[in-house]
Amino acid sequence: MREQRTSDRATSLLIILVIVSFVAMTIDIRAEGEGVVGTFRQGAQTIFSPLQSAATAVVDPAIDFVDAIANLAGLRDENARLRARIGELEERLDSVAGLEAEVASLRRILNLTPANESVGKVAAHVIARGDTFDASFRIDRGTSDGVLVGNPVVDDTGALIGVVTEATGEAATILPIISAAADGVRVKTPTGEVGILRGRGSERVMDFEVLDATEAVFADQLLVTAGSERYPAGISVGRVLEDGGPEAGRLQTTAVPLAEFGKLDFVVVLQWTFTTQLQTTTTTVPETTTSTTGGEG
């Protein structure tokens, strides 16, 4: 009899908690992470971040050690390949130095600054990750280090990873571009076609769509950000996976991101938001005008 009563109470509790869960999901989605839910998130993350940092400090060396053992057989080949590559790169270094000087000179003339170089950067360590269905991850830098919600995040090679969606004093959460829940990234091809790149949740494949397409895209073409409210222009994002041509003005194909999302240990947060971009543009335009006028004068 007692067992039956306890079981009935558990069923009632289940129904209540299921309703609470659905209400919480609805409120969270409508509030878009702001309000009370955002405060709760920040509280939980503040509590768990130190524990996750400590655990990562222990886990990282162990995983690196296991990785090293697992890759031991391939290291010799990798070493030989890298030596050959160093030789090639040294040969190209002289010509690259000349090109760099030329690019710098042209930039001065055109008054251009690449997106990645015009903003501050904060290097961060990945301290925690989501599960199979949640591609988000957490880093050990937060608002006290100048990281803000909306800042883009790139890997150590400069490839786009995602955007900061939550930030506490000491940590921040990143939503990667490969997540199906992430907003699409506005990118352009080398031929100037501008389209949207959307994640599917799977690391290696993203959907690439161009409306009003005029030219075909080809496999291995580089896709860079075209500039939007979410990301500044000029960040490398991925490469086209399959050739595609416009059909009735619409082009649909697939692409792969450049970043290795499964192996991220360190990332770089770009201290850029669309608001700062607007402010910079607003303050730059009169200066340019003045400079031109002065030059003409």
């Binding site: 299921v18 869960s21 919480a24 989605i29 989501g130 269905f133 949640d134 997540s179």
Partner: peptide, 21 residues
């Protein structure tokens, strides 16, 4: 579930619902 939801980016209550069931 609710703690995992708070630490991730999924809607708050998703994992709470699943783990309760």
């Amino acid at each position: 579930g609710i703690i995992l939801d708070l630490l991730g980016t999924a809607p708050l209550g998703l994992r709470a619902l699943v783990y309760t069931i």
